[in-house]
């Protein structure tokens, strides 16, 4: 997902500006003119300068055709964005439901969504999602003692722990 460097440069000029603005709100140390805002201000300024270099470089190459945004393969933007959206959505679902549903429900659902989107074999994907989640749970919860939430399955926590 390529964007023209004029856009990329502009993004970092704006980001650098926001960083400088926010950093200027921070106080300085008592005895010297430097403080917690000094370093971010410096970073913001450098970002703006580098952003300007990136944005200006294509302007100097006269005659070159402009492609504001492009995809790596011949696919439509809705297709590309939906692929990214599915990955983000599956993770967002996990984040939103982990504490309510518990790991052993949230993770298989997220994994299955991703597997069916990429692999498109229902039975195999379902099995991989369930077994994969169970293995991840066994390793991190049982062996590494990570406190993965049980959520809805709290009453069955004893049965499901080996």
């Amino acid at each position: 997902m390529y964007f023209d460097d004029r856009l990329n440069g502009l993004v970092f000029i704006l980001l650098g500006g926001v960083v400088v603005f926010l950093a200027q709100q921070l106080p300085t140390l008592t005895f010297i003119d430097y403080g917690p805002g000094f370093f971010p201000t410096l970073i913001g300024c450098v970002m703006m300068i580098a952003g300007s270099v990136i944005a200006l470089k294509p302007l100097l190459q006269r005659g070159a055709s402009i492609t504001w945004a492009a995809l790596p393969r011949a696919q439509s933007w809705p297709q590309a964005l939906s692929a990214i959206g599915v990955v983000v959505g599956a993770i967002a679902f996990y984040i939103a439901t982990l504490n309510i549903l518990g790991f052993l429900i949230a993770m298989p659902v997220s994994l299955f969504v991703l597997l069916i989107f990429f692999d498109r074999r229902i039975v195999r994907d379902l099995l991989i999602a369930i077994i994969g989640s169970f293995l991840l749970h066994s390793f991190f919860y049982q062996l590494m003692s990570v406190q993965l939430p049980w959520g809805l399955l709290t009453p069955f926590a004893g049965v499901l722990t080996w």
Binding site: Y94, L111, L114, L115, F118, D119, R124, I128, L136, L148
Partner: peptide
Amino acid sequence: RSVLMPLIVGACIIGSFAVEN
């Protein structure tokens, strides 16, 4: 890779969660 990548997403999620809980 269509199987491997979703499993990597699972590992990324739990790996991030595990350290900070």
